[in-house]
């Protein structure tokens, strides 16, 4: 709130261009608030709202497994915000988090990779990406920003899905969490708003030979099951990456996770780092604005 007041008064001082910055996110903000409202309503009392939100769920799910009264902050936890059984297993594994070594490796990379510290003097920036770069006219995800920085320092870029990239992002996430940072995505130009709109369109369109949209599973579907997996909500999807997945036996970035879901959709995955992927991530991250950064994390 204070941040908002400060920005506003700076805007007044600086005149028109910055003044209108506040309004470029008007539609996104409307979308975000609607999503929060939908999710809070859906998970206020699943048994009561069964007919509306969980028409095909089992008695066991709506009466005992799904948690009631899920709060806004809880959505940073993905499906563990409401899946009691999953949450129990998650907490057990988290007693000995398998990603600790990755954070250490990430700190090493931060301190010893040429150029990185100069580009990112403050490592607690996980919640600020993706950003829209008005000079380049495109969305820059954290992974792309890291690679731009490496290239500027004369180094080879890293793979966007795992390895060093995931380790360094784990360090950034841990530092951001430690500092109590929240997701804070900005839309400050017409071009940025257009990129957001394209990302939203990708998210809500039916694609792949199965004709499923991301939203089928993660908006309407959230809290329901595909096989035995309880589906996580769009709200909070970007807060806790990178994640250590048992299935991967290792750490992976958000880009890596989304590739898997595109395959589930029956689609040839888009290239991580492509405008398609970056713009969708921009939309997804904006939806999580205001939630605490909570990475790295573990998932099945």
């Amino acid at each position: 709130m204070i941040g908002k007041i400060v920005t506003t008064s700076v805007a007044v001082l600086m005149g028109v261009t910055v003044l209108s910055a506040g309004s470029f996110n008007a539609q996104a903000e409307k979308d975000r608030q609607a999503l929060v409202k939908y999710m809070e309503k859906k998970f206020a009392d699943p048994e009561k709202s069964r007919a509306q939100f969980f028409p095909y769920a089992t008695d066991e799910d709506v009466k005992t497994n799904l948690k009631k009264g899920v709060k806004f902050e809880d959505f940073r936890m993905g499906s563990y915000a409401f899946d009691k059984i999953g949450r129990g297993q998650y907490e057990e594994i988290n007693e000995m988090p398998p990603y600790e070594d990755n954070i250490d490796a990430g700190e090493e990379l931060y301190n010893n990779t040429k150029g990185i510290k100069k580009c990112f003097p403050d490592p607690a920036i996980a919640g600020e990406y993706p950003k829209f770069d008005d000079k380049k006219g495109k969305v820059v995800t954290l992974s792309l920003a890291i690679n731009d920085c490496l290239k500027a320092a004369g180094q080879k870029p890293w793979k966007l899905t795992k390895g060093k990239m995931a380790d360094l992002e784990a360090y950034f996430a841990a530092k951001s969490k430690e500092a109590g940072k929240k997701v804070d995505i900005k839309i400050q130009s017409k071009a940025a708003a257009a990129a957001y709109e394209r990302g939203k369109k990708y998210y809500y369109s039916q694609r792949g030979y199965l004709k499923l949209s991301c939203a089928t599973c993660h908006v309407q579907g959230s809290g329901n099951r595909v096989r035995k997996e309880v589906l996580s909500p769009l709200l909070g999807h970007t807060t806790h990456f990178p994640v250590y997945r048992l299935k991967w036996q290792g750490l992976g970035t958000l880009e890596r996770r989304i590739k898997g879901c595109e395959k589930n959709q029956g689609e040839n995955p888009h290239k991580p780092g492509s405008p398609w992927m970056s713009e969708m991530l921009y939309f997804m991250a904006y939806m999580s604005n205001g939630l605490p950064v909570d990475g790295p994390d573990i998932r099945r």
Binding site: Y56, T58, N224, R225, V226, R227, L231
Partner: peptide, 17 residues
């Protein structure tokens, strides 16, 4: 089975979309 349980049949971990 990713989305459907089936009455009277033993399905391994069906979903409920």
């Amino acid at each position: 089975l990713a989305c459907h349980a089936v009455n009277g049949k033993n399905i391994n971990n069906p979903g409920n979309l």
